[in-house]
Design a protein around this nucleic acid. Structure first.
Ligand code: MN
Ligand code: MN
Ligand code: ZN
Ligand code: ZN
Lengths: 157, 157
DNA sequence: CAGTATAGTTACATTGATTGTTGATTACAC
DNA sequence: GTGTAATCAACAATCAATGTAACTATACTG
């Protein structure tokens, strides 16, 4: 992701103002690999700025996403997750238990521009659903059972 | 998917009743490769049975899904899509314009049971987003531009 | 065939993430 | 400094999906 300084310039250059809350959001996103939700950003931000509104967070994240500075990622949890990693083409690991999301680089066999089964491909998104290390540890014995039968019923994303 | 007859037996064997609306839902799903939403099933069904309620459709689809007879698939459109194809392990093509969903068989490089990056894998879902043949035809010239810039901004599923 | 448990219907209400609205207040940027 | 944006607060609205409740209808069993 661009640095907070670059973003400041970019925002001003495009007629947007850089407020303290926006600057803090830039900083919070910097190098964050946890794919936070809007609510999570809000939670972290309101720890420091008691008066921020959730609305402002949504607005700023939406703006960043529409500028291509961050990605909004849908991994099938009900809420969108935001991803500052726009440099590296990657896919996602999702923990089925705690909903932690982590980057993973996988070679995808379908590239944009290709035609497959008549479809002109734009992008391919892969979500690998499993149990993160800490959830495996917490479940111990039961982890294997979880992955086998567990809540692995629904398909896709 | 199991045949309507098999489903009838299965329902009765598990203490469920087989009503005309349920039987029709079984039949509508049979061999349907379009991955209809609950609303779509409801639309089709109410064309024949004026009094069906959406509630009943949701209920029956939910029951079928929890019995493993069909899959409920989340491809990132806001609504769940239902899939009678539980026999073949497969992935999905999604049209970014009309939201048509089609099966596609892709070899996935991450198998359940494997551990990748510390995650114990349960399942891998791939959604290939692109333009379906008819949308390409309708867009003509503009199709290529659509896939390039178009609404390809958000990631995953 | 009749009794009973199950399902369907209708009409709401609710959930949860997100977006929209309004109006008043604050403060960034030139 | 001035004007334009952004923020805030307090709501309302969305949309898919689920829940509730009361009543009716009917599928299955014996
Ligand atoms: Mn990522
Ligand atoms: Mn399918
Ligand atoms: Zn976890
Ligand atoms: Zn299409």
């Amino acid at each position: 992701m661009k640095s907070p300084e670059e973003l400041t310039d970019l925002f001003r250059a495009t007629g947007r103002k850089v407020t303290p809350q926006r600057r803090r959001i830039f900083e919070l996103l910097q190098g964050d690999g946890t794919h936070p939700s809007a609510e999570e950003i809000y939670r972290r931000l309101s720890a420091e700025m008691a008066t921020v509104s959730l609305k402002t967070v949504y607005q700023t994240l939406g703006e960043l996403a529409s500028m291509g500075v961050i990605l909004s990622v849908d991994v099938g949890t009900r809420s969108m997750r935001f991803d500052p990693n726009v440099e590296t083409d990657h896919q996602h690991l999702l923990c089925a238990r705690c909903e932690a999301v982590r980057d993973v680089v996988l070679s995808v066999e379908v590239a944009p521009g290709e035609v497959i089964d008549g479809y002109l491909v734009m992008r391919t998104d892969v979500v690998v659903k499993g149990l993160c290390p800490s959830c495996q540890a917490e479940l111990g014995e039961a982890a294997a059972r979880w992955t086998a039968s567990g809540s692995a019923r629904s398909a896709a994303s």
